[in-house]
């Protein structure tokens, strides 16, 4: 529900975000953590963390599907993949 609240407030232009590797991500102070037992800013950061090494593997795994679809794959998808790799 907290995630959904952030999503909704983003759409309404009322929640902040910062630019991450993958996309816009909530800052700890944008995120309603009150009333969550033991889920604090540190835990949120952990749940939000991105590991470049894991993501290199992820991109390679994504390629298995893209290779099957190669003949019809739009170039935008390939460019987005390249941009993601560049950000890692």
């Amino acid at each position: 529900m907290r995630v959904l609240e952030w999503v909704v407030e983003r759409c309404r232009g009322r929640a902040n975000a910062s630019e991450g590797l993958l996309g816009w991500v909530p800052d700890a102070h944008d995120f309603d953590l009150e009333g969550l037992d033991g889920f604090d800013a540190a835990r949120l950061q952990q749940a939000q963390s991105t590991n470049a090494e894991e993501w290199r593997r992820e991109v390679l795994q994504q390629d298995e599907l893209f290779m099957r679809l190669y003949a019809h794959l739009p170039k935008e998808i390939i460019f987005q993949r390249e941009l993601l790799i560049a950000r890692l």
Binding site: V3, G23, L44
Partner: peptide, 24 residues
């Protein structure tokens, strides 16, 4: 269980299509 964060927002529509195309 790993790799993908709890939540992030795509930069724009085209990036969002890539995000949707790569879910697993």
């Amino acid at each position: 269980t790993s790799t993908i964060p709890l939540v992030y927002q795509a930069f724009n529509w085209v990036h969002g299509v890539y995000v949707g195309a790569t879910i697993g």
